[in-house]
Design a protein around this nucleic acid. Structure first.
Length: 280
DNA sequence: CCAAGGCCTGAATG
DNA sequence: ACATTCAGGCCTT
C-alpha cells in the first residue's frame, strides 16, 4: 500500500515549479511573495510572517487525485517512483513574474534573474538569523522603470514585467477572483497579460491559482507525449499553434481527468530526471 | 487559422 | 578565439 501523505520536498522543489529556494542543512528556505518559508523534511512549515499558507497543498486528497490520474503504466511508474512529489501553492504575483521570465529561457537563468529582482526591488529582512530579500510587491515593479528592470537580466521581458505588474496593481488582474472562477475563464483573463501565452498561463494557473486541470505544454511535455503517448495525442507539427494547444489540452483532460496538472508534474519530473538536468 | 521570424542573454557547440 | 545555435515562448507580420 502506498503512503499518499508522504512528502518529498527535494523532488517537489526540484521539479521546475519554483526557483527561489535553497537548502541549508536539513531545511529548505524559500521566498514566497512577502513571506519567507522554512520547511523541514516532513513538510512542517515555519514562516517569516507567521502566516502559514497551505503551500504543500495538504488539503488536496492525494489518494483520490493520484488514483484518478493512474491511467496507464507510464504514469503509474512515475507516481510510484516520485510519490511525495507535490504541486505547490505559490504566491500568484511571484509566480506570474517567474513564468514571464521563463519563456525562452532556462532554470539557471530564471533563478539568477529572480534573485536580482528581489535584491533590487524587494525588502531586506532577517529570518532565522539569515538575510533574505522578499519578492517585490506589484506596486514596486509597476512603478519601476523598464531600464531598472532590464538590469536584472530579463531583456525584452522587462516591458512585459512592467505591464503585468501594473495590471495587478490596478486590479485589472485580480488573483482572488481568478482563484474562484473556472479554468477557462481564468485562462482567458491571464492571457490578456503581455508575455503570458498558453504555456505561461497554465503554469501560473496550476502553481498558484488552484487550477489542477491546467497542463502546461512546453517543448519538454510535447516531447514526452510524443515519446510515451504517440497514438493517444498524435502530434504533428513542431511549433504548436493556439488551436492545436487547445485541442491537445482537451484530449489530455479527457484522458487524465480534471486533475491532469498532477499528471503533468509527475511525467515532467520523471523525464527530466532521466536527462539528469540540474535543478536548484 | 497557420507559418515564419525576431527577440535579451548566457551557456553550449562548432 | 570567435561565430553560431539554442533554451522549459510570445508577439507581430
Amino acid at each position: 500500500m502506498q503512503d499518499f501523505s508522504k512528502i518529498n520536498l527535494d523532488n517537489t522543489i526540484n521539479s521546475g515549479q519554483v526557483f527561489l529556494w535553497q537548502k541549508e542543512e536539513k531545511y529548505w528556505f524559500g521566498v514566497n511573495g512577502q513571506n519567507i518559508l522554512k520547511i523541514n523534511e516532513f513538510g512542517k512549515i515555519k514562516s517569516y510572517s507567521n502566516q502559514k499558507p497551505d503551500y504543500l497543498r495538504n488539503q488536496d486528497n492525494l489518494e483520490i487525485i493520484l488514483k484518478s490520474i493512474s491511467k496507464d503504466k507510464i504514469i503509474n511508474s512515475a507516481i510510484t517512483k516520485y510519490l511525495g512529489l507535490r504541486i505547490l501553492r505559490q504566491d500568484p504575483f511571484q509566480c506570474l513574474i517567474s513564468f514571464i521570465i521563463s519563456s525562452n529561457s532556462n532554470i539557471q537563468k530564471i533563478k539568477i534573474c529572480l534573485e536580482k529582482i528581489c535584491k533590487t526591488f524587494g525588502e531586506k529582512i532577517f529570518f532565522e538569523n539569515k538575510e533574505f530579500y522578499l519578492f517585490p510587491e506589484p506596486k514596486t515593479l509597476a512603478f519601476a522603470s523598464i531600464n531598472e528592470i532590464k538590469k536584472c537580466g530579463v531583456g525584452y521581458r522587462a516591458k512585459f514585467i512592467s505591464e503585468a505588474s501594473k495590471m495587478v496593481y490596478y486590479k485589472k488582474i485580480n488573483f482572488e477572483y481568478l482563484k474562484n472562477c473556472e479554468y477557462s475563464e481564468a485562462k482567458e483573463l491571464m492571457s490578456q497579460i503581455p508575455g503570458v501565452g498558453n504555456k505561461v498561463a497554465d503554469c501560473i494557473l496550476l502553481f498558484s491559482l488552484d487550477k489542477l486541470e491546467a497542463f502546461p505544454l512546453d517543448r519538454w511535455m510535447i516531447r514526452i507525449l510524443e515519446k510515451y503517448y504517440p497514438q493517444l495525442f498524435e502530434l504533428s507539427t513542431k511549433t504548436i499553434t493556439q488551436r492545436q494547444y487547445q485541442k491537445l489540452h482537451e484530449k489530455i483532460i479527457k484522458y487524465f481527468g480534471t486533475n491532469a496538472g498532477y499528471a503533468q508534474q509527475f511525467l515532467f519530473k520523471m523525464e527530466r530526471e532521466n536527462y539528469k538536468k540540474n535543478w536548484l
